[in-house]
Design a protein around this nucleic acid. Structure first.
Lengths: 212, 212
DNA sequence: CCATGCAGTTAACAACTGTTCTCCGTAAGG
DNA sequence: CCTTACGGAGAACAGTTGTTAACTGCATGG
């Protein structure tokens, strides 16, 4: 419990981060449930048993990776939605932010998309939980918009979920997009989808009856 | 090449199906990339080497599973969309069909959701390909609707993709929904999301300019 | 300055993996 | 009826895996 980091603790977190980084890289070609403890330590260059000084298991490491990966997604999503209402330019700017994030942290995006429905329960739950927080945050941002006047909280959240899912799906598609024009094609459709949802949003309260 | 099945070929396809079934069951708690060849044969009760009489590798088996799983999803999605336009009842009926499918083939739904972004490339590609066919099919169904008059083919496909993704996401959420009221909550939000998209659809051409 | 704590090592374990080669029984086809 | 083709069994292979235990060196805190 030393307030000043100390050489010791610094080194520990250094190799801990090395383990996380190595795991993330190894996960490009496989799923977490097939990632081996020895595989990771070998990539880092430490003895297999040293792994236990940092994580109890691979699933444990996975949960840590979730926090790290979604920590980087956090500001992105917030910025995206704070600018994304209806206007053309807003949609375009949001999509550019997503693309930029995919370029900056491709492994993070891949990890989240892959393990969101992956085979390791605690990791799945961690992602679901964090994504729920994001949805709530996006919901707050949407609620602040005048276009959300008269909306129930439940409806705001369902809209937020729609946006979050679309953003994640688009990010994943951008990640796998290869070949000339592929990225542009993905962006075009994503832009239209966002626009269509925005249109549905503006007319949500138009219907004869309220919103049952 | 015997026209009549024959006892031999029948038995072969029987164990082949047993392998597929066993794999699907084992995949409830892990991802395909961690599924072992011996694990599957052990579950079926045959020698490990017999596996090669049916599949070249686990990835190969995975591709076969994709066709089987999406073969069962096929009629569901078609029926769903052919009934899902705008009306309240149509949305409700579509959701009921989805829920029914999740109950009937939970392992199939889990497999597709998990391996869609999973760690085995050929399987990912097979799913993406099949899902693309579905999207096209849904697009055709949508194009037949009078509400799609004046829509470009590209826009119809982007709407179809939106619907397909929403259906898959909802199915996955239903699968993991546990506890009283969880399923109902998932269904409620999914219904509203479908409704909102439907609203966006009806007002898609309302905007001042055409659709760039 | 010295004793303690702890990141990391080494060795060893039983169990498991994918794959090859050889063999067996039997349905299929002439 | 007799040969062939083939689904499956068996044994063996070289590697790999997670986890244990006891050990070492060194920064840390008193």
């Amino acid at each position: 419990m030393s307030h000043i980091p100390g050489v010791r603790q610094a080194q520990k977190q250094k190799t801990r981060q090395a383990l996380l980084d190595a795991a993330l890289e190894l996960l490009e070609g496989q799923s977490l449930s097939s990632l081996g403890l020895r595989e990771v330590t070998r990539a880092v260059g430490i003895a297999p048993t040293a792994f236990y000084r940092h994580f109890r298991s691979i699933a444990d490491l996975g949960v840590a990776l979730v926090e790290q990966a979604l920590g980087s997604l956090h500001p992105m999503i917030r910025t995206t939605v704070s600018t994304a209402g209806d206007g053309e330019e807003r949609v375009a700017r949001a999509l550019e932010l997503i693309a930029r994030h995919v370029d900056a942290y491709p492994a993070h995006v891949r990890f989240i998309a892959r393990e969101r429905h992956g085979g390791v329960r605690p990791v799945r739950e961690a992602i679901h939980s964090q994504l729920g927080l994001f949805t709530a945050e996006v919901g707050e941002a949407l609620a602040g918009d005048p276009a959300s006047a008269g909306w129930s909280e439940e409806d705001v959240l369902m809209l937020a979920q729609l946006y979050v899912d679309l953003m994640l799906g688009t990010a994943s598609l951008l990640l796998e997009a290869e070949g000339p024009g592929a990225r542009e094609r993905v962006s075009r459709t994503a832009a239209r989808q966002m626009r269509l949802i925005g249109i549905g949003r503006t007319h949500w309260l138009d219907r004869p009856d309220g919103s049952p």
